[in-house]
Amino acid sequence: MESQFQFDWQAAINSIPFLIKGIPYTLLISFGGLLIGFALGIIFGLLSINRHWFLKWPATAYIEIFRGTPILVQVLFIFYGLPDLIGGPIDPLTAGIAAIALNSGAYISEVVRGGVQSIDKGQTEAGLSLGLSRTQTFWSIIWPQAFRRMIPPLGNQAIVSIKDTSLFSVIGVGELVRQGQVYIANTFTAFEVYFVVAVMYLAITLSLSLVLRLVERRGLASV
């Protein structure tokens, strides 16, 4: 069988206005989820290196559970499973944001932990020896240095999470991939449409990489 396939540029261009409607959802789920995930990451990351086992263990359990299970299973669980428990439906957008938040939160916890633990013990000793409390030493000496080291892995996580939102087409959020599937169902131009979808993801992630590189350069300039 010989392939007669030719890339139909017109079909690709025609799909753009419809596909582009998915971008706000992709961005909303990604960045809404990441924002909450960052808060969770700081909280559970710091708890996971706490001296008290009753704070450390729950945090470690959270991290291991959400890193150790697929995000697809997590979102299916939240969207289809959780309503049984709470006795009412969860809308797909909320489920998507929650899944990104909980999943990225686990990875960001590890980024926070690694960042904080990478700071030399001598910094804490210097702070304490000057009379600062443990809390003061942490927030004015350790955290600013750790945060700078966290920027590249945080950017990495943001890019992973943006791409993860593509899985949420399965729960029917009108994000990029879902829009593509709906469009293809009417036009049968799978090659062109998924090509455009891929380009749109690339545009988002490349823009983010660029911004991150600028932030990194500014952040590291002083050290």
Partner: peptide, 23 residues
């Protein structure tokens, strides 16, 4: 300390001002 342990994210002056201001 042997390894100085200055705070690398603060200027020299801010290194010296930190503890009096905070403590």
């Amino acid at each position: 300390f042997q390894q100085f342990n200055l705070f690398p994210h603060l200027t020299v002056k801010k290194n010296i001002m930190l503890a009096p201001q905070k403590v």
